[in-house]
Simulated assay, not measured.
Amino acid sequence: MPDARLDVLAIGNAIVDVIASADDDFLAREGLAKGSMRLVDADEAARLYGRMAPGRETSGGSAANTVAGIAALGLRAGFIGQVATDQLGEVFAHDIRALGVEFATSPRGGDLATARCLILVTSDAQRTMNTFLGASQYLPAAALDQRQIEDAAILYLEGYLWDPEEPRAAMERAIAIARGAARQVAFTLSDSFCVDRHRDGFQALIDSGRIDILFANEAEIVSLTQAADLAGALAAVEGKLPLLVVTRSEHGALAIRGSERAEVVAEPVAKVIDTTGAGDLFAAGFLAGHARGRPLEESLRMGAIAAAEVISHYGARPEADLKALVATKLG
């Protein structure tokens, strides 16, 4: 197998996040369940944006946040995602390229608008997300660069993008290309609502051996397997995945690879400000360690360190020097 030009290439929603503070009364008036994620249409996105407090705009999207973290850790990362020919599309492309991430997907014209996520953060650091998917859900298989996929050691796929038919077909094509090139395929379940909608499809990916690394939180893996608890969920997927990584919020994280199992505690945080992107940055840290051949426990610790950094401030992208932070904490 030839050497990889990229360590990780991700496919996911290309979204611009708009993050603003809100209180419980605002959420109640808007009929929003704290900590939830819902999809909204263009009209609802415009209405809610007009009622929000002043916000901070930054490029986001789950897999895009992950590759931003991977680049911050000094690895070679790429991203495939669909934006539109509008101002937010230009913002997204500029931001992700400025981080050193390879992004070459052509913008899509027509009446489509670039996706945006309106994130309301309350004083207890809970985020309530209102996502307008816009152009991101129209990523065609034709937008894929076969050579780019073949040149990436790990292909990382975002479960959020499995819902629309067009990008799902693109991701299935990307999986076939990566496996044909003997590259690893990583998949994140993204959210329990994704699992509820696509349980059979996700199980089929696992059962057919097309996934090498699965990322999930505790609720997602329990939902996927429909087990009674985490122990039952782990038993249900035992032997079906070369590598399983499960995050458990304040209880840390675990990874299972064959007969090997590793667990770490959560990294301490002086004050949790905003949990947006915690799972995304955990995946970044873990994949950075895994791509460099580090032991399971060390890769888990890298994930925990990256997640702790991102929840200590607003926004889903790291602000501290992640590479230096990991080096200091791991010694």
Score class of each variant (00 low, 15 high):
residue 222 V to Y: 09
residue 123 S to N: 02
residue 117 C to W: 15
residue 141 A to N: 03
residue 159 G to T: 01
residue 139 L to F: 06
residue 204 A to G: 11
residue 116 R to S: 08
residue 152 A to K: 12
residue 163 D to N: 03
residue 164 P to D: 07
residue 168 R to L: 05
residue 141 A to G: 03
residue 136 S to K: 11
residue 152 A to G: 10
residue 148 Q to G: 09
residue 218 E to T: 15
residue 172 E to K: 05
residue 132 F to Y: 14
residue 165 E to W: 12
residue 209 G to W: 08
residue 179 R to I: 07
residue 128 T to W: 06
residue 128 T to P: 02
residue 133 L to W: 12
residue 158 E to N: 06
residue 224 L to M: 01
residue 143 A to W: 02
residue 223 S to I: 10
residue 140 P to M: 14
residue 174 A to D: 02
residue 195 V to T: 11
residue 147 R to A: 15
residue 121 V to F: 03
residue 142 A to Y: 06
residue 203 Q to K: 07
residue 136 S to G: 11
residue 197 R to S: 13
residue 114 T to M: 00
residue 190 S to Y: 02
residue 224 L to N: 07
residue 125 A to D: 00
residue 196 D to A: 15
residue 199 R to C: 06
residue 178 A to V: 13
residue 135 A to P: 01
residue 118 L to P: 00
residue 189 L to W: 09
residue 191 D to S: 01
residue 116 R to P: 01
residue 172 E to Y: 08
residue 167 P to D: 00
residue 176 A to I: 07
residue 181 A to R: 05
residue 116 R to V: 10
residue 167 P to E: 00
residue 162 W to R: 09
residue 126 Q to V: 10
residue 214 L to I: 14
residue 186 A to P: 02
residue 186 A to M: 06
residue 143 A to I: 07
residue 144 L to C: 05
residue 144 L to E: 01
residue 129 M to L: 14
residue 149 I to V: 10
residue 198 H to V: 02
residue 224 L to E: 03
residue 192 S to F: 06
residue 220 E to H: 13
residue 210 R to M: 06
residue 169 A to D: 10
residue 119 I to P: 03
residue 170 A to S: 10
residue 216 A to M: 10
residue 117 C to M: 12
residue 139 L to R: 11
residue 185 V to K: 02
residue 160 Y to V: 14
residue 196 D to L: 14
residue 189 L to M: 05
residue 180 G to A: 12
residue 205 L to Y: 01
residue 146 Q to P: 08
residue 154 I to S: 00
residue 198 H to A: 08
residue 224 L to H: 12
residue 204 A to S: 14
residue 117 C to P: 03
residue 198 H to Q: 09
residue 165 E to P: 07
residue 156 Y to T: 10
